[in-house]
Design a protein around this nucleic acid. Sequence first.
DNA 1: TATTCATATGATTGTTTGTTCATATGTTCA
DNA 2: TGAACATATGAACAAACAATCATATGAATA
Lengths: 101, 101
Amino acid sequence: MGKKEEMPEEEKLQQLADFFKVFGDVTRIRILHVLKQSEMCVCDLALTLDMTQSAISHQLRFLKQMALVKNRREGKTIFYSLADDHIETILRMGTEHIEEE
Amino acid sequence: MGKKEEMPEEEKLQQLADFFKVFGDVTRIRILHVLKQSEMCVCDLALTLDMTQSAISHQLRFLKQMALVKNRREGKTIFYSLADDHIETILRMGTEHIEEE
DNA sequence: TATTCATATGATTGTTTGTTCATATGTTCA
DNA sequence: TGAACATATGAACAAACAATCATATGAATA
């Protein structure tokens, strides 16, 4: 929609750092890794990752803000899933880098 | 050399987070961005990025540890450069993600 | 409508992290 | 060898961050 090419270089680099920062935490990586397989509600994420509902919820808010996950409500429960398959690609790239050599 | 496929999932995710964490800081992103164009010595990096030599040096050590940069000595000065072109690819992927939509 | 279940959120806290300051190491050249 | 220059490093400090605790919001159902 907007012309992002016009963004000043410095600001772009800041955004880039902010973007990668999201992946720089194990909890968030674990969440993304689980969601990569299937959508999941908050309480099941908490169970699966063995963390409190609150901790998961806080991270999900962050991930949502950064547009990495989306959610849908079904009655009382809210299901989270990856926002797009771009995320998987990035995770795979990182994995490949780590695994080589 | 080692078979990285045998690594336990949890440890792999931790390594992945640690890897991305490197890119999650503006200073490091700026350093990598500059080195993408040409190798450079510590003092010029400090000048270019308008930061103290010490701050740059600390970050370079971190980047070196994570195998993202390499260096060579030439007399008194030490030149740093990107360790491989993989880094550029990852930066580009991040940039693309940010710039789209 | 009161209770229960699912999730969100604000405040607090302990930890991590980036920068600074002071100083050490290492190289060159007079 | 000693002065000058380039880089590295340890300790200390402040800011950012993630988890926790307590509580609020919101939906279903008895």
